[in-house]
């Protein structure tokens, strides 16, 4: 992980540029919690070409009693306006792993009014549930992801370098895994909550990716699908790649993401043919 002391956050960009010259990072990964799978993989197999900024390291006040008021204000500011942070790095290729958990937030747990919806080209809906329109579900997602979309577009506009956006891992179809991993941290009551049927959770994931794909296309960003071998026959996250929670990929998944980044034509074009060669 790249260090970025909070005491600098309040400084304007021109001061930061003079104070701390931007650090050259061949592949700069910016994201939230999904970057942890990659970070853990790099712990196992270090590669100095990578730098990772996890924007979630900036804690919100209620989570961090130990932060001073000044640090808290600075942290919130950087999370909302990350340019002073971005100004500290000079990447060759930028990799976005921003957002990606919205389909879980909106669809992991069954709603009070169970629903289903039709995806374009996939007319099947489960019986006995309120049938929402695709337009309604999409409007909710667009509303929910707009901050992530802004941050992803900002990476391209700010750096002016090639940007890859890595899709978040798909959901798991295994309800037992979800309940098993929720119980220790979130408690039995949460783990017992009814879950949205897996086919609907998958639709929500696909819808999220569709919005991201369109956003990337409109902003000259390359959207990268999740590694094919990490998926089961139905497109869900396969068992060997699941983390200890219902949301994230594990270190093996992170290794596949690193491989896909390095093999991607955008990376190869930017870094040259040596992009594929590991440099521990």
């Amino acid at each position: 992980m790249l260090p970025w002391p909070a005491r600098y956050h309040h400084l304007p960009r021109f001061v930061l540029r003079g104070l701390v010259p931007p650090r050259k990072v061949p592949i700069l990964i910016v994201g939230m919690s999904h970057t942890n799978a990659v970070a853990h993989a790099l712990d196992h197999t270090p590669d100095r070409r990578f730098g990772i900024i996890n924007l979630r390291q900036v804690k919100v006040p209620e989570d961090t009693a130990e932060m001073t008021a000044k640090e808290t204000r600075a942290s919130l500011r950087i999370r909302r306006r990350p340019i002073p942070l971005f100004a500290r790095f000079a990447p060759t290729v930028v990799v976005s792993m921003v957002g990606g958990a919205n389909h879980h937030m909106l669809g992991l747990f069954e709603h009070a009014e169970p629903f289903d919806f039709e995806m374009p080209g996939a007319p099947d809906v489960l019986p006995g549930r309120r049938r929402l329109t695709y337009a309604e579900v999409r409007a909710v997602f667009e509303f929910h992801v707009h901050n992530s979309l802004d941050t992803i577009a900002l990476l391209r506009r700010y750096y002016g370098k090639p940007v890859l956006h890595i899709s978040a891992p798909p959901p798991t179809s295994d309800e037992a895994h979800i309940r098993r991993t929720l119980a220790p941290t979130r408690g039995d009551a949460v783990a017992r909550q009814p879950l949205t049927p897996a086919p609907i959770r998958m639709k929500m994931y696909l819808l999220q990716n569709q919005i991201l794909r369109e956003h990337c296309a409109a902003n000259d960003i390359t959207f990268v699908e999740p590694p094919a071998e990490a998926l089961d026959d139905d497109g869900f996250l396969a068992e060997p790649y699941r983390s200890f929670d219902p949301v994230h990929g594990n270190v093996t998944y992170g290794q596949l993401v690193i491989r896909d980044i390095l093999r991607h034509p955008v990376t190869v074009a930017a870094l040259g043919p040596s992009a594929n060669e590991a440099t521990p």
């Binding site: 958990a101 941290t185 983390s243």
Partner: peptide, 25 residues
Amino acid sequence: RPGSVESAKHIIDAICDEDALRDVR
């Protein structure tokens, strides 16, 4: 409200924060 989007967001937010602290598999 349990079962609401706000409630689910709170749970997933907590999971995403804790993921940084968890050991790897």
